[in-house]
């Protein structure tokens, strides 16, 4: 783990109509590390990472990437910093096929400047073979796919473009047991490749398995960040429910 964090979120705030959705939150992420974000619905987890992914504009605070201050005002800015996001809603255009979704906004083009559908289909087949060998419906609109298949399209999109920072918002929510395991293996593999990963989930046990550190949020505020070795599942649950860090209290 290098000394300079890959991502530093410093004192981030955002409010919607007077409600402080994220209230002066700071958090960092190192290369080759998985940081889990936990909390109730509406605690501000998704909002916080949507600021990093460029979907929301923060009201206050700074984002530093690789020790340099970064301005992220749009999803395109985030992509330029090699930040890829798997959204909870998956953010797929249902009427387009897997390849069009995978390359949406970054289409492969022929020398003439036309989109190269055949090449994109071939590339999609390649990465899907790695992520989900059962995936066969390359030509059909993603609305015709099952929840798990749609999820793998969203994951493929985040992984394909050599991300350095990966944000996964409930990546296993729609998945069965077997597919969940595949995602867990993928997270470990990507971590070993040196990516930094923010993971949001409600499954505390899964988080204890996959994450190096967990951060708990409540009502827009950061309750605490702990290394998973230092806490028990019960400690985390009490942080989520009570909004207090038992270690700090002790």
């Amino acid at each position: 783990m290098s000394d300079t964090p890959l991502v530093q979120l410093k004192d981030i705030s955002i409010s919607f109509g007077g409600i402080k959705a994220v209230d002066h939150v700071s958090l960092d992420l190192h290369a080759g590390e998985v940081v889990g974000l936990l909390g109730h619905n509406g605690a501000g987890k998704s909002t916080l990472i949507k600021i990093l992914s460029g979907a929301y504009k923060k009201d206050g605070g700074e984002i530093w990437i690789d020790g340099k201050r970064a301005e992220i005002n749009s999803p395109r800015d985030a992509r330029d910093h090699n930040i890829e996001t798997i959204y909870q809603t998956l953010a797929l255009a249902d009427n387009l096929d897997a390849a069009s979704n995978l390359f949406l906004g970054r289409e492969l083009t022929s020398p003439m400047g036309f989109v190269d559908d055949a090449k994109m289909a071939a590339e999609t087949a390649k990465i899907m073979a790695r992520l989900n060998p059962n995936f066969k419906k390359l030509k059909e609109p993603v609305s015709a796919l099952s929840g798990g298949q749609r999820q793998s399209v969203a994951i493929a999109r985040a992984v394909y473009f050599n991300a350095k920072i990966l944000i996964m918002d409930e990546p296993t929510a729609a998945l069965g047991v077997h597919e969940t395991e595949m995602v867990a293996d993928l997270i470990k593999e990507l971590k070993d490749q040196g990516l930094g990963i923010f993971l949001i989930s409600h499954d505390t046990r899964e988080m204890m398995d996959l994450c190096d550190r967990v951060s708990v949020m409540k009502n827009g505020q950061m309750v605490g960040t702990e290394r998973v070795e230092d806490v028990t599942e019960d400690d985390i649950l009490s942080m989520i429910i009570l909004g207090k860090n038992p270690k700090a209290a002790a």
Binding site: A91, D94, N95
Partner: peptide
């Protein structure tokens, strides 16, 4: 054009 029609939010998040 098709992407915006299918899911405007997804199109926006894809940097369009």
């Amino acid at each position: 054009v098709y992407a915006i029609g299918g899911n405007p939010e997804a199109a926006e998040l894809a940097g369009i």
